[in-house]
Amino acid sequence: MPRVVFLLVPRVHLLDVAGPAQVFSTADDLGHPYTLTYVAEEPEVATVQGLVLRTETAWPSLAPDDLIVVPGWRGPTRPASAGTLRRLRDHHASGGTVAGVCAGADALGRAGLLDGRRCTTHHTVQDELARLHPRAEVVKDALYVEDDRIVTSAGVAGGIDAALHLVAARHGPRAAGEAARAMLVHMHRDGTAEQVSPLLRWRSHVDETVHRLQDLIETRFAERLPLRLLAEATGCSERTVTRLFSRATGLTPLAYQTALRLERAGHLLERGATAETAARAVGFEDARALRRLRARPGRTMHSKEASWTQAHP
Rank of each mutant, 00 (worst) to 15 (best):
P64F: 04
R239K: 14
G191K: 01
L216A: 09
W308N: 15
A193K: 04
L216C: 02
F6V: 02
V45D: 01
R54G: 07
H211R: 15
A154L: 08
R181N: 09
E218F: 11
V206Y: 11
L85Q: 01
L225P: 02
L36K: 05
V139C: 11
A142C: 14
A231N: 00
A259S: 14
R288I: 15
G112Q: 00
R299L: 13
H171W: 12
W308Q: 15
R228L: 13
L164D: 00
L132H: 09
T84R: 05
P198E: 04
R86S: 15
E137R: 12
A275E: 15
A169Q: 10
A233V: 07
P33C: 10
T240A: 14
H205W: 06
V241P: 01
A311G: 12
T120M: 03
H211K: 15
L213I: 08
R78A: 14
G83D: 14
A157F: 08
P226I: 04
A175I: 06
P71Y: 01
A154C: 15
R264Q: 12
E305L: 04
H205A: 09
T242W: 09
G96S: 10
D16W: 00
A273I: 06
E137N: 08
G266F: 00
L260I: 12
L184E: 15
G283V: 03
G116C: 11
L67Y: 02
D207G: 09
P20D: 08
R224N: 13
E137W: 04
E263G: 10
P60V: 06
P43L: 05
V39Q: 04
V48K: 04
T309Y: 15
P20E: 05
V69L: 11
H211G: 13
C102W: 01
L262R: 03
S204L: 12
T219F: 14
P173A: 12
D190R: 14
V70K: 00
G116T: 08
E223I: 10
R3P: 02
E56D: 13
W59I: 03
Q49G: 14
R149M: 08
F24Q: 00
L85Y: 03
H165V: 06
P76K: 06
G266L: 03
E238F: 06
A311H: 07
S25H: 09
F284W: 05
A273D: 06
R149G: 01
M183A: 08
C119Q: 02
Y144P: 03
T47S: 14
P198S: 10
V156F: 11
E146K: 05
G235W: 09
H123T: 10
I160C: 07
G104T: 01
A111F: 01
T97Q: 04
T37M: 10
T26F: 05
R74M: 15
G191M: 01
W202C: 10
L227K: 03
A168G: 15
